[in-house]
């Protein structure tokens, strides 16, 4: 049950876009058509499902305080390397994105061409780095206690981001034909729509899990 709660919470209540504004850069830039939004969302979800558990393992067995106890070396017992976590997390994410890019290029050139420049840019998508950093916080707060839960959390957060960008793209496709003040067209109205969607998403925060 605990994992189901984490799953639902990460999609709806702690939605990456509407509650924390993570991944806004690509969210605003890529949400012009539903098709590309679907592709990017898929890639982000996949990378997040993989990197959050990887970073969880690194956090458990390398970075956090006392994590090196498994080496059975006395001098390493109390070492706290958590100040290195930014650089380790981003290295994992960047190298994983590089791997995904090479794999997609090799096995599915059509998808590779569809995603184009957005694939390498996943490395600097704040949602992914944010997912790992929140995972680290939740481990400290003992809300995530196992590898399985970290997988569920990564997958759920990715799905939440996917949902948000596809919804946004669908709305923006419609607004192309609306009469919006000239100065508000493009990013201006996109921000305001996101804000209103965020207010709508706040109803989920009433759910007790």
């Amino acid at each position: 049950m605990e994992s189901l709660n984490i799953f639902i919470r990460s999609i709806f209540i702690d939605n990456m876009v509407f509650a924390f504004f993570f991944g806004m850069c690509s969210y605003i830039a890529v949400s012009k058509s539903v098709k590309t939004a679907l592709g990017l969302g898929l890639a982000v979800t996949f990378v997040m499902t993989m990197t959050v558990p990887l970073n969880y393992l690194l956090n458990e067995y390398l970075l956090s305080k006392g994590a090196l106890a498994w080496t059975k070396i006395d001098a390493l017992k109390d070492v706290d390397l958590s100040f290195l976590s930014f650089i380790v997390f981003i290295a994992v994410i960047a190298s994983f994105t590089q791997l995904v890019e090479m794999a997609v290029e090799k096995f599915s050139p059509t998808l590779y061409n569809q995603l184009g420049i957005f694939l390498p840019l996943i490395a600097v998508n704040c949602a992914i780095m944010g997912g790992s950093l929140f995972m680290q916080q939740k481990v400290e707060a003992e809300q995530i206690t196992s590898l399985w839960q970290s997988i569920v959390y990564g997958f759920g957060s990715g799905l939440g981001w996917w949902l948000a960008i596809v919804m946004m793209a669908a709305i923006r496709e419609k607004t192309t034909y609306s009469h919006i003040p000239e100065a508000l067209k493009g990013p201006g109205i996109a921000f305001i729509i996101t804000g209103l969607m965020g207010i709508a998403f706040m109803i989920f925060s009433g759910i007790k899990l």
Binding site: F18, A19, F20, F21, P181, E182, A183, L184, P187, G188, I189, A190, F191, I192, T194, G195, L196, M197, G198, I199, M202
Partner: peptide, 22 residues
């Protein structure tokens, strides 16, 4: 104090800014 309001404020800033920078 809620997060969505920040987005709406930025949207308004963009609106004002672009009205002056046509």
């Amino acid at each position: 104090l809620f997060p969505p309001m920040a987005l709406i404020l930025v949207g308004c800033i963009i609106w004002i800014h672009r009205s002056y920078n046509k």
